[in-house]
């Protein structure tokens, strides 16, 4: 399986988090998965400006030539996309959210009724399944995890995919591996 990990950790000095992700990547590769681990803080990505060039000037592609173009390509070729991030102020990092905003070109502006609601039409045949891996902060509680999961569940609907799990770095690497491996 082709796996893309979008890693929204802003703190390069968090060795515990980095070690967890490194172990997960190693375990997935040992399980014969092809893994791209994209550390967003090392990428050059501009914020989305809402210009909609990606929908009406250069359909399917952001007008700005930044590293989000490669992330879009990696996303659409992946079978599984793992959003990994610490929880900061009750939500994944701004780095991750900025990158998520830049996935908008992968969808079409046209609207269709899906599950009795308006959602964007697909631009591509298929989209990767989604998972969430969160590092809790001292103030993160079960309500935060539910709120985040609900929002990413909604994102998966618009992304024409499914959110298959939300897990935290409190769980052993092997459990996260199994959750991905059994998809």
């Amino acid at each position: 399986m082709k796996i893309l990990i979008l890693d929204g950790q802003p703190d390069a000095n968090d060795v515990q988090y980095a070690g967890y992700l490194r172990q997960l990547v190693q375990r997935l590769r040992a399980g014969n998965h092809s893994v791209t681990h994209t550390i967003i803080r090392e990428q050059s990505i501009k914020y989305c400006t809402g210009c909609w060039s990606c929908w009406w000037k250069t359909p399917g592609r952001c007008f700005v030539q930044d590293d989000s173009q490669q992330i879009c390509a990696d996303t659409i070729h992946a079978d599984f996309l793992l959003f990994a991030s610490p929880v900061i102020m009750g939500f994944p990092s701004a780095l991750l959210k900025k990158t998520q905003d830049k996935l908008i070109p992968l969808l079409h502006p046209y609207i269709q009724i899906v599950h009795k609601e308006c959602h964007h039409r697909k631009r591509y045949e298929s989209y990767p399944k989604l998972g969430l891996l969160l590092q809790k902060s001292p103030d993160t509680d079960a309500e935060d995890i539910k709120i985040i999961t609900d929002i990413y569940d909604r994102f998966s609907l618009n992304f024409r995919s499914t959110l298959d799990f939300t897990m935290t770095t409190e769980q052993p690497v092997e459990e996260v591996f199994h959750a991905i491996n059994h998809l």
């Binding site: 989305c48 939500f91 701004a94 959210k97 990158t99 998520q100 929002i151 990413y152």
Partner: peptide, 9 residues
């Protein structure tokens, strides 16, 4: 994308 824009986060 179903939440706040990146600049707001």
């Amino acid at each position: 994308t179903d939440a706040m824009p990146g600049i707001v986060k």
